[in-house]
Amino acid sequence: MNGASREALASARERLDALTDNTSVDAAKLAEELAAVTALLDREVSLRRVLTDPAQAGEGKAELAARLLGSQVGGETVDLVSGMVRSRWSRSRDLVDATEELASIADLVAAQRAGALDDVEDELFRFSRIVSSSTELRSALTDRVATDTAKAGLLARLLGGRANPVTERLVVRLVAHPRGRSLESGLTALSKLAADRRNRMVAIVTTAVPLSDGQKRRLGAALAKLYGRQVHLNLDVDPAVLGGVLVRIGDEVIDGTIADRLEEATRRMAG
């Protein structure tokens, strides 16, 4: 998102945070209702264009949203969406993206309240690794011919009873409504949202063998000192790195593997 949309999303997230600070608000229900609004806006192109039309008064758009949604969702959801349509958006599509993001954040709030946010982060990462390593599974989950019911059934068999209910809801929504994204990029975005709930960075750490608990603590502390904030470690094992540690944080790569040093030595000898 750019410009006005980025500012509108920031304001919407602040309103969501203020709302969910009240523990009497059912965050899971809020997530479900925001997801339903996302589906409506994604489907009804003319509606979202009206709700993001800069020529229309913000209060008039908020009243329209309240009339349309008032009998379908709860008051908290109506208030959130009304506030969003009062804002200015660079593109009508950005309103849909923002509503979807708020739905995901609300579900993560539910996980956080239950003390399960770390589990959800780890499960999203592990599932993304499973998808990237299985062409057959990825094809089944992204098959445009397969129904949403069939995909949800497959996910229920894969995740049901094995993953946190929040993880399952997030993945099911992503698979059912990819909205032009690849499955991998959608899972990465969800992992980042989960990390942001604790103001943490996410590091993908690849080693030849699993790290011990002590090694994890020392690596986490070193990265936290380097970046000035807590860093959540998503751990992956790949014998190809031979030894050492490969760390990816966003676009930045810290490569301390033997394989990298061997490659560098080979380049020097060739030169």
Score class of each variant (00 low, 15 high):
residue 119 D to Q: 09
residue 101 E to M: 11
residue 110 A to I: 07
residue 99 T to G: 06
residue 113 R to Y: 04
residue 110 A to P: 07
residue 111 A to N: 15
residue 114 A to M: 10
residue 118 D to V: 03
residue 105 I to N: 02
residue 90 S to G: 08
residue 129 R to N: 08
residue 81 V to H: 01
residue 100 E to V: 12
residue 123 E to L: 14
residue 109 V to Q: 00
residue 122 D to C: 07
residue 110 A to E: 08
residue 144 R to N: 08
residue 94 D to N: 11
residue 123 E to K: 12
residue 131 V to G: 02
residue 110 A to D: 09
residue 104 S to L: 06
residue 106 A to I: 05
residue 83 G to P: 06
residue 96 V to L: 12
residue 104 S to K: 08
residue 94 D to T: 11
residue 139 S to N: 02
residue 100 E to P: 10
residue 147 T to I: 15
residue 73 V to A: 03
residue 99 T to I: 05
residue 147 T to M: 13
residue 139 S to T: 03
residue 114 A to S: 14
residue 150 A to Q: 05
residue 111 A to T: 15
residue 100 E to Q: 14
residue 129 R to T: 08
residue 151 K to M: 04
residue 142 T to S: 01
residue 134 S to Q: 09
residue 123 E to W: 09
residue 128 S to G: 04
residue 93 R to P: 10
residue 144 R to D: 08
residue 132 S to R: 00
residue 133 S to M: 10
residue 86 R to Q: 15
residue 127 F to Q: 06
residue 149 T to Q: 09
residue 99 T to H: 02
residue 105 I to A: 06
residue 135 T to Y: 04
residue 152 A to H: 14
residue 126 R to Q: 09
residue 152 A to E: 14
residue 120 V to I: 00
residue 127 F to K: 03
residue 116 A to Y: 12
residue 147 T to N: 14
residue 123 E to T: 13
residue 121 E to W: 06
residue 142 T to F: 02
residue 113 R to S: 02
residue 87 S to Y: 13
residue 132 S to V: 00
residue 98 A to Q: 08
residue 151 K to N: 00
residue 114 A to Q: 12
residue 145 V to K: 11
residue 84 M to F: 10
residue 91 R to K: 07
residue 126 R to G: 08
residue 144 R to M: 07
residue 77 T to P: 03
residue 104 S to Q: 13
residue 81 V to K: 01
residue 72 Q to T: 14
residue 146 A to Y: 14
residue 92 S to R: 09
residue 87 S to I: 15
residue 79 D to T: 12
residue 138 R to T: 02
residue 90 S to C: 06
residue 151 K to W: 00
residue 76 E to P: 05
residue 139 S to A: 01
residue 153 G to F: 04
residue 122 D to G: 09
residue 85 V to E: 02
residue 141 L to A: 13
residue 101 E to H: 12
residue 146 A to C: 14
residue 103 A to R: 03
residue 141 L to P: 09
residue 94 D to P: 09
residue 88 R to A: 11
residue 129 R to A: 07
residue 71 S to L: 09
residue 100 E to L: 12
residue 88 R to D: 07
residue 143 D to W: 07
residue 98 A to Y: 09
residue 134 S to A: 09
residue 140 A to S: 13
residue 73 V to F: 01
residue 122 D to I: 06
residue 134 S to M: 08
residue 151 K to G: 01
residue 123 E to Q: 15
residue 141 L to F: 14
residue 95 L to W: 13
residue 145 V to S: 10
residue 97 D to M: 15
residue 89 W to G: 04
residue 136 E to A: 06
residue 142 T to K: 01
residue 140 A to C: 11
residue 138 R to D: 01
